[in-house]
Design a protein around this nucleic acid. Structure first.
Lengths: 95, 95
DNA sequence: TTGATAGGCAAGCCGTCACTTGCCTAACAT
DNA sequence: ATGTTAGGCAAGTGACGGCTTGCCTATCAA
C-alpha cells in the first residue's frame, strides 16, 4: 500500500493527473486526456492515461464511480496527508 | 528537482535508509550497510547502498560531509515538508 | 613502505515500467 | 438494428532502474 503510493507519485504524468483532478474533481478518462493535451501539451494515448489512472487507483489516490458508460474519477487526498510524517519531527506527538 | 525527490522516495530501500538516518544522523556508508543488514535483513552490496545514497543526495534529502576517509551522511527533511501541499487544501493560504 | 580500510567509477545484467497497438464489450442515439 | 461513444484487456517494445562485479584512489596505522 505504502509502496504503491510512492510508486504512483513517482511518475510526473501521474502527478499532473492529480493536479487536474485537484482543479476539477470527477472527470472522465477522456476529459483527463483532453486536459493533458490542451494544458500541458501531453499527447498520450487513451490507454496510457487509463493505465496511469489504474496505478493511482491502486494507491487509493483516485476513486472511481460509474454512471452508464461514463466512469468518473475522484481525487482522494487522504493518503497524501501523512506521507512524510515518519521522517519529520512530530512536535504534536511529544508533549 | 521535484522529479528527483519523488523518484528518490519511490524505492523502498531508500525509504529505509531515510528511516535509519532519522534514527541516527551522520552515518557512514558502512554503518548504513550494517544497519540495513542487522535491522532489516537487507544484504545489499556496498555499491548498491552507495548508489541509493547518491540518488538521495541528488534529491537533496541527504547531505554529505567528508572527514578524512570517512563520508558522513546527514538527513535533510526540508524537501519533505511540502511534498503533498499542491494537492491538499491549504486553509492557511485562504484567509 | 606495506597493508588495511573507506569510498568511487564504469560496464553489464535483468527486471520493471511507460507506452503503443489491436481488438473487444457496454451504453446510448438515431 | 446500426453506428457511435466511453472504456477495458492483452501482448509487445524500448528504455530506465536497481544491483552486481571488477578495478581503482585516498586515507590512516603498523
Amino acid at each position: 500500500m505504502e509502496d504503491e503510493l510512492f510508486k504512483a507519485l513517482a511518475d510526473p504524468t501521474r502527478r499532473l493527473i492529480l493536479d487536474e483532478l485537484t482543479d476539477r474533481d470527477g472527470q472522465s478518462l477522456f476529459e483527463i486526456c483532453t486536459r493533458l493535451i490542451t494544458r500541458h501539451g501531453l499527447a498520450l494515448s487513451r490507454q496510457a492515461v487509463s493505465q496511469h489512472l489504474a496505478v493511482l487507483e491502486a494507491a487509493d489516490l483516485v476513486r472511481t464511480r460509474r454512471d452508464g458508460r461514463y466512469k468518473f474519477h475522484d481525487l482522494n487526498t487522504e493518503p497524501l496527508e501523512h506521507i512524510a510524517r515518519r521522517w519529520l519531527d512530530h512536535p504534536e506527538d511529544t508533549p
